[in-house]
Amino acid sequence: MKVYEAYEGDTFIATGTIKDIAAALGVSVSSARAMANRGHSKYTVIEIGTRRQIYAYYLDDEFITEGTMHQIAEVTGEQLVTLNFLSSNAAKKRNLTKTLIKLEGETMIVKRTHGAKFAPVPTNDERKEAIKVFKNVPVKPAEWRPSEYAKSLFEHSFAKWRA
């Protein structure tokens, strides 16, 4: 779930989902979303990240760690696919030694750039800057080497175009 912050000039107004921002500003949800995407003359709405669920990871009955799935994967070395399975109802029915328990009401805001916690969020101006790609290797012209069948199809297709 995406999390936003709303400002009027330099004054902080609210933080939350797009519905929370819309309610705080007194506008519709679509208007708040448009403010976040295109900007507004009076209000500034910035996406700050996503809200992620916090889990507790157990091995047998021993507590190992807690955090988001990405954090638990880094600490334990488990794959995200495995952690997703451990959080499912099917894993609970199998009585596995590894357990992943969802902590109700516990969430964390993860900054949105590459899933990194506390990573800098680019401004709208930085997002709109053109990306320039340079390649130092000269491009060699390709040589067309079709099969005899492809040549005949080509000749037949463009026969009327030739003068």
Rank of each mutant, 00 (worst) to 15 (best):
A6T: 03
Y7H: 08
E8W: 00
G9T: 01
I13K: 13
A14K: 13
I18L: 09
I21S: 07
A22R: 01
A22C: 04
A23I: 03
A23M: 06
A23C: 01
G26Y: 13
G26P: 06
V27K: 15
A34M: 11
N37V: 13
H40V: 04
K42F: 08
V45P: 03
V45W: 01
I46N: 11
G49I: 05
G49T: 03
R51I: 06
A56C: 08
A56E: 13
D61K: 11
E62F: 08
E62R: 14
E62I: 14
I72G: 04
E74A: 10
Q79R: 11
N84S: 14
S87Y: 02
A90E: 12
T97L: 10
L100G: 02
I101V: 15
K102L: 15
L103H: 07
E104Y: 06
M108A: 07
M108C: 04
I109E: 03
R112L: 03
H114W: 09
G115R: 11
K117P: 00
F118P: 00
F118H: 10
P120W: 05
V121G: 04
P122W: 01
T123K: 06
D125E: 12
D125V: 01
R127Y: 01
K128H: 11
K128M: 10
E129C: 03
E129F: 02
A130R: 12
K132I: 10
P138V: 09
P138W: 12
V139K: 15
R145L: 14
P146R: 01
E148P: 00
E148I: 13
Y149W: 06
A150E: 12
S157E: 11
S157R: 09
W161K: 10
R162C: 09
R162W: 05
A163K: 11
